[in-house]
Amino acid sequence: MSIALQLLLMPLAAFLVGLAMVLMMRKVRASVERRIGPPWYQPLFDIYKLFAKDTQISHGVMHDVAIMMVLGGIICVVLFLPVPGMSGLSAKGDLITLLYLMMVPSLGMALGVGQTANPNGSIGIARALTAMAGYEIPFFICVAGAALHYGTTDLNQILTIQQHGGHLEHWGIVQMPLLAVAALFAVHAMLGKEPFEIYVAPAEIATGPMVEMSGKYLGTLFVMQCFQLFTVSVLYTTLFLGGGFSWFTLLLKAFAVVFISVLVTNVYPRYRTDDVLRWQWKWPTGIALLGLGMVMLQIGR
């Protein structure tokens, strides 16, 4: 497939899958609460409605540019994430590049929220960055362990190593079970779900970063959520679940990752900011460090 076509199809596929994931999240939440939940087209309708608002408020140039950065940054991330049949630009930037590119939309959002000049938003961003300091440390320990285990940071090579022979035994989760568990905790916090949902906290800080977002501004954040669900779950699948031979297996695994997260979410209230840090720095970090030790023993150093 030509690279130009891939660059078009990869974000499109990511968006559609992300929409389905959002739908699944809402459906699962409804089931847990013994409701019926929204119809299948609901995520799409929400986004279309938001983009079709007649009036919307901008708080300045940076507020506008931030929305472009959010959308552009998150699309750019997807281009570096190989999926079955399409490797996109993943040969030109490795795992570390991908992880740092994932921070660009967050940075854009942080700047835009800053310009909306609402302290609820600023508190939200302060909390989001604090939560990031919480979950990125265990996640990067897992990434370091995985990179050492595979001996590479090239995502295509990581996939090839795991899919070698077509059996389970090369999967990251079999080879590095502790790291996979720790990374799952970190991924859960990365998706910003309860009990780590400190930066949205509608009842406390009025949805934090989203407080001044209307119309297409909010719509872009909805789109970002779709992409984020896709990126994070597919990245986890790539690192620990052997990626996918086909779209079917990939989506099965990616949906499973999100599903676990969503199931956990619905039975928890929200932690306090410092408790998020303490929890993330105690359990996932501890497990990840043990896992890292195991990887170091395996590679013989």
Binding site: I67, M68, M69, V70, L71, G72, G73, I75, C76, L79, F80, L89, K92, G93, T97, L101, V104, T220
Partner: peptide, 14 residues
């Protein structure tokens, strides 16, 4: 490539 992809994608977003 990274910067072009980023700028291109942000352009699309714009």
């Amino acid at each position: 490539v990274v910067v072009s992809a980023l700028i291109g994608a942000i352009g699309f977003g714009a």
